[in-house]
Design a protein around this nucleic acid. Structure first.
Length: 463
RNA sequence: GGCGACAUGGCCAAGUGGUAAGGCAGGAGCCUGCAAAGCUCUGAUCCCCGGUUCAAAUCCGGGUGUCGCCUCCA
């Protein structure tokens, strides 16, 4: 497996800390609002990474957190009058359900910041003892000047004159960041030896990683992943904290996914161009969204467009049409060469384009073979197994192929369609092609495509 | 201002110095009563200008353009 390491800024061979094991931590969402397509892509990309490692034979420990205490959540409390827990549990449930409908599996562990307060406090206490953290009027801060490796991850050069962050004269260095915010009046808070308050964002991840993943005597995980926007300052700060506290590097490899853009602009609150996953799911099938969002390289930006999404749907349609042709042939003996090549492509820093081109080639080659040998069971068995494997590695093609083409068609409609198909068959038998074509046209107008095959007339809802 | 990414046929998108994968759309054909589906064939010298090299989309330098991070952000 080769992956692009954002820290080294080059593609490198992946070498696990412990043979055949991979510990992956992904920065999850702050749960104060609905997930948008950007969250979906990040989740999908690292879901694919996880599946790839599993297929390569690794034992994967996959952790994704929820940030459930944060200024934005508190703001939401003020706006809605709801409790912290009402807000966060609502958005966590939404997130998990929506991710499920695009085929993202739950992480092995999904820690919440509020359930790791003790570890966060302990973490900060150690930093205070080591004089790496210090207190000012509004909280505990991390002294970045104590870490001579600070900024080596992101390679940023701090130019205070251009920094957009508000200048705080109490801080020792302007790049110092908050570890613990003292609470004002009725804000949610936790008691700590150094004062009542709540954790800062960066320290949560470091503490949760330590709590859940630092065993076997190591603070280090294999891969730390997240959106490209987290590289600085979030990941830089996480790395620094852990380095200063434990003396070890937090992660061996850093991976960052590119953004989902709308009209080439990053989806963001301020631009009001967020496309929420729940809205997308109202319009498109989750499987198609998954396939679409996975269809290009994870580090490139992904410009969302309906047209491109429909291209992905067509590509998926083709897979399902092949699945129809081999559906009843369940004996499993997949093509080793296909699997090997496909995994090889994914092992090149998740080269999905290359992998999908192999899938397309497999599909068209198999269709050709089946055109020539419609009754060849060996081909059908193998193809069925190939598609089964694609389900597990890509998470697509898992539906009943007949049902797939009937999404959004109710029973009454189905009966009507079948009735017209029967009438048309009768007309065809009587060589009344004018009537047959009229019946077909009637269905076409309703978005139903007919196809006459050796096994009778089949239909697809094309919308 | 600092740091960085990207620029490949109409669109989407791979590409490890040796003469451009794949998908969609378009065109031609096979199949079909006609279609649909499926299959076959069909198109680019890779933003511009220099340089290195026997050889560059791929390396180097300089432009131009787009986007991102440096405030919360997947």
């Amino acid at each position: 497996m080769h992956i692009y390491d954002s820290a080294k800024r080059e593609e490198v061979l992946f070498v696990p800390i412990k043979t055949d094991k991979v510990k992956i931590y992904v920065c999850g969402p702050t749960v104060y609002d609905n997930a948008h397509l950007g969250h979906a892509r990040s989740a999908l990309v690292f879901d694919l990474l996880r599946r790839t490692f599993i297929e390569l034979g690794y034992k994967v420990i996959f952790v994704k957190n929820f940030t459930d205490i944060d200024d934005k959540i508190i703001k939401k409390m003020d706006e809605t009058g709801q409790t912290l827990n009402e807000i966060t549990s609502h958005y966590i449930n939404m997130y998990k359900n929506e991710m499920k409908s695009i085929g993202v599996k739950d992480a092995d562990l999904e820690p919440k910041a509020t359930q790791s307060i003790k570890e966060i406090i302990d973490f900060i206490e150690v930093l205070l003892e080591k004089k790496i953290a210090y207190q000012i009027s509004n909280g505990i801060y991390f002294d970045t000047s104590k870490d001579n490796k600070y900024l080596t991850l992101s390679r940023m050069k701090m130019d205070d004159t251009k920094a957009r962050v508000e200048i705080n004269r109490e801080k020792k260095n302007q790049k110092d960041f908050v570890l613990w915010k003292f609470s004002k009046n009725k804000e949610p808070s936790y008691d700590a030896s150094f004062g009542t308050g709540r954790p800062g964002w960066h320290v949560e991840c470091s503490a949760m990683i330590e709590k859940h993943m630092a065993y076997d005597g190591s603070y280090q995980i294999d891969i730390h992943a997240g959106g490209a926007d987290l590289f600085f300052p979030h990941h830089e700060n996480e790395a620094s904290q852990t380095r200063c506290k434990s003396g070890q590097e937090l992660a061996r490899y850093w991976m960052h996914n590119g953004f989902v853009t709308i009209n080439d602009k990053k989806m963001s609150k301020s631009l009001e161009n967020s496309f929420f996953l729940k809205d997308a799911l109202r319009e498109y099938d989750g499987e198609i969204l998954r396939f679409y969002l996975l269809s290009s390289h994870y580090r490139a930006n992904f410009n969302f467009s309906k047209e491109d999404l429909l291209v992905s749907k067509k590509r998926l349609d083709k897979l399902y049409r092949l699945k129809k042709r081999v559906f009843e042939y369940k004996k499993s003996t997949l093509c080793k060469e296909f699997k090997k090549n496909f995994l090889k492509a994914l092992s090149e820093d998740l080269n999905i384009s290359k992998a999908l081109s192999l899938l397309d080639l497999m599909i068209s080659k198999t269709n050709e073979e089946l055109d020539l040998n419609p009754k060849n069971k060996t081909i059908k068995f193998e193809t069925n197994a190939n598609l089964k494997w694609i389900e597990s590695i890509l998470g697509i093609g898992y539906q009943n192929p007949y049902m797939y083409f009937q999404i959004g068609v109710n029973q009454t409609e189905k009966r009507y369609i079948e009735e017209l198909i029967n009438k048309r068959a009768k007309a065809k038998k009587e060589k009344d092609f004018k009537k047959a074509d009229f019946l077909r046209e009637t269905l076409t107008c309703r978005g139903v495509n007919l196809m006459d095959t050796a096994n009778g007339t089949q239909w697809e809802k094309v919308k």
